[in-house]
Computed example of a mutant assay.
Amino acid sequence: MTPVQDCMQCGKCCEKWGWGQKGIPEDLVPWIRNNRRDILQHVGIRLLGGRRQTGTNLTLGDLAQVTRIDYWVDLNGRTLSHCPFYYRADDGKVYCRIHDTKPAVCIGFTPWNEGIRDYALDCPACRTNTP
């Protein structure tokens, strides 16, 4: 059985892996339906034929043409070296500005279950889960 662990909001996983991730069309559906251009403007899209764009003007009808989704890009479609929704508050904790609708790759990442040794050694939540 996989151990359950609470994130301590240190931000280390977002700092190391919170950008340059590949997306899935299912992430885009609620963002399109809810007109979340604030998110879609930072999503790199490659369509059939190789055309590239951000997700800003993407429609549900376009999803069948999507061949690749990249998180996170700037307004010109260039890859960012950070997540634009990462926020370190005055309390020292890191918060996701799109937590309620963040992509599956972020939701599913649990370093204490991943066995990623170089990261796990620095994760405070991983250290509290060590026997």
Score class of each variant (00 low, 15 high):
M1A: 13
P3S: 03
P3G: 03
V4T: 08
Q5E: 10
Q5N: 13
C7H: 02
Q9K: 03
C10R: 00
C10K: 00
K12N: 12
E15S: 09
K16L: 08
W17A: 12
W17T: 11
W17L: 15
G18V: 03
G18L: 06
G18M: 10
W19A: 07
W19F: 15
G20M: 09
G20H: 10
Q21L: 14
Q21D: 06
Q21H: 08
K22Y: 14
G23Q: 03
G23I: 01
G23S: 05
I24H: 14
D27E: 14
L28V: 00
L28M: 09
L28E: 03
L28N: 02
V29A: 11
W31F: 08
W31P: 00
W31K: 02
I32S: 13
I32F: 10
I32E: 10
N34A: 14
R37K: 15
D38N: 14
D38V: 06
I39K: 10
L40C: 09
L40S: 12
Q41G: 06
H42M: 04
H42F: 13
V43Q: 09
V43A: 07
G44I: 06
G44D: 12
I45W: 11
R46I: 08
R46P: 01
L48V: 09
L48E: 15
G49E: 07
G50N: 04
R51C: 02
R51F: 13
R52F: 08
R52E: 15
T54W: 11
T54S: 12
G55N: 00
T59D: 09
T59M: 06
T59E: 08
D62H: 06
D62P: 01
A64F: 11
V66F: 05
V66Q: 08
T67W: 06
I69H: 01
I69W: 06
D70W: 10
Y71G: 03
Y71D: 09
Y71F: 15
Y71P: 02
V73T: 08
V73P: 01
D74Q: 11
G77R: 10
G77S: 08
T79N: 12
T79M: 15
L80D: 07
H82N: 04
C83E: 01
C83L: 03
P84V: 03
P84R: 05
F85N: 04
F85T: 02
R88C: 04
R88H: 06
D90A: 02
D91F: 04
G92K: 01
K93D: 03
V94S: 01
Y95V: 02
D100Y: 02
T101D: 04
T101Q: 12
T101M: 10
K102W: 04
A104R: 10
I107S: 07
I107F: 07
I107Q: 11
G108L: 11
T110R: 10
T110V: 12
P111N: 05
P111T: 00
W112I: 00
N113K: 14
E114D: 09
E114H: 05
G115A: 07
R117K: 11
D118Q: 04
D122W: 14
C123H: 04
A125L: 00
A125K: 00
C126W: 14
N129T: 12
N129L: 15
T130K: 13
T130W: 15
T130G: 08
P131R: 02
